[in-house]
């Protein structure tokens, strides 16, 4: 079991709720993935501060825990205000904190992120910070009061998979007891399996499932890959070797050439 701020979670897949062909397909994908946590953007679905009540009730009817996020916030103030709104709307202290530094690539502003995390943690929020794979930023986030880290493995929506495996390994090595969730950049199930094999605790996805030809089928595929990666990590994998090493003994072979 994975413990996130004291809540026991058995599925290691977290799913975003944007960009699906329809709410019905979103619902079926959530069921197929057996995820227990979905992220919801307060800003993305809001128009002039008002939101689609029926869309919320569809999300709530899925019976999963909601992790609201501050997607689209470009400043500390904006992110803090959005987090507080989300706490009211969803009655949860959980917040996936995003402070965007670059409008085009949606790269996190790690300076603003640390500042916003400190403010929100002091206000009783349980912060899930969306960050880069930078080790020092990770340390600062933990100092600010975060008990979970959500590093990217590639830019959001890029579907490129793990770009800097050494940085991800380094994070895992430095923070063995902190839940680490890879958020953003996953394109296919093999990417998810790869980061789970590195020992990451969970994976958060959205576009890779929502924009797949068959989102429900892809949700199932990711669930299996994430389980496989986790099981492989726990089972212990062989390290690569420079030489071929046959699994059958050479001694006793009839002909040596």
């Amino acid at each position: 079991m994975l413990s996130l701020y004291g809540t026991e979670i058995s599925s290691r897949l977290l799913l975003g709720t944007a960009l699906y062909p329809s709410p019905a397909i979103l619902g079926d994908a959530v069921k197929a993935s057996r995820t227990e946590i979905v992220t919801v953007s307060l800003r993305r679905e809001a128009a002039g501060g008002r939101t689609g009540e029926k869309f919320w009730s569809l999300i709530q009817s899925l019976g999963v825990r909601v992790l609201p996020n501050t997607a689209g916030c470009h400043s500390v103030k904006e992110a803090v205000t959005t987090a507080k709104m989300a706490r009211e709307v969803f009655s949860t202290n959980w917040i996936k904190l995003e402070v965007i530094g670059n409008h085009d690539t949606l790269q996190p502003d790690v300076f603003g992120l640390v500042e916003a995390a400190r403010i929100l943690a002091a206000d009783g929020f349980q912060v899930f910070p969306y960050t880069t794979d930078d080790l020092v930023v990770a340390e600062r986030l933990l100092e600010a009061g975060c008990k979970i880290l959500m590093p990217w493995c590639a830019p959001i929506g890029s579907a490129r998979g793990p770009q800097n495996v050494e940085a991800l390994r380094s994070l895992r090595g430095h923070f063995p007891d902190t839940p680490l969730i890879v958020d953003a950049g996953i394109g296919r199930p093999s990417h998810a399996a790869a980061v789970m094999e590195l020992g990451f605790d969970a994976v958060l996805l959205n576009t890779a499932v929502a924009k797949a030809g068959d989102p429900i089928g892809m949700a199932t595929a990711f669930a299996k890959a994430i389980e496989a990666g986790r099981a492989a990590f726990l089972a212990g994998m062989l390290e690569p070797r420079d030489m071929a090493v046959p699994s059958t003994p050479l001694i006793g072979k009839a002909v040596f050439s």
Binding site: E45, A46, A47, G48, R50, T51, G52, E53, K54, F55
Partner: peptide, 11 residues
């Protein structure tokens, strides 16, 4: 395409 039935002016 915004999940909302708010009819106010364009943002």
């Amino acid at each position: 395409m915004i999940e909302s039935d708010a009819a106010g002016a364009i943002t």
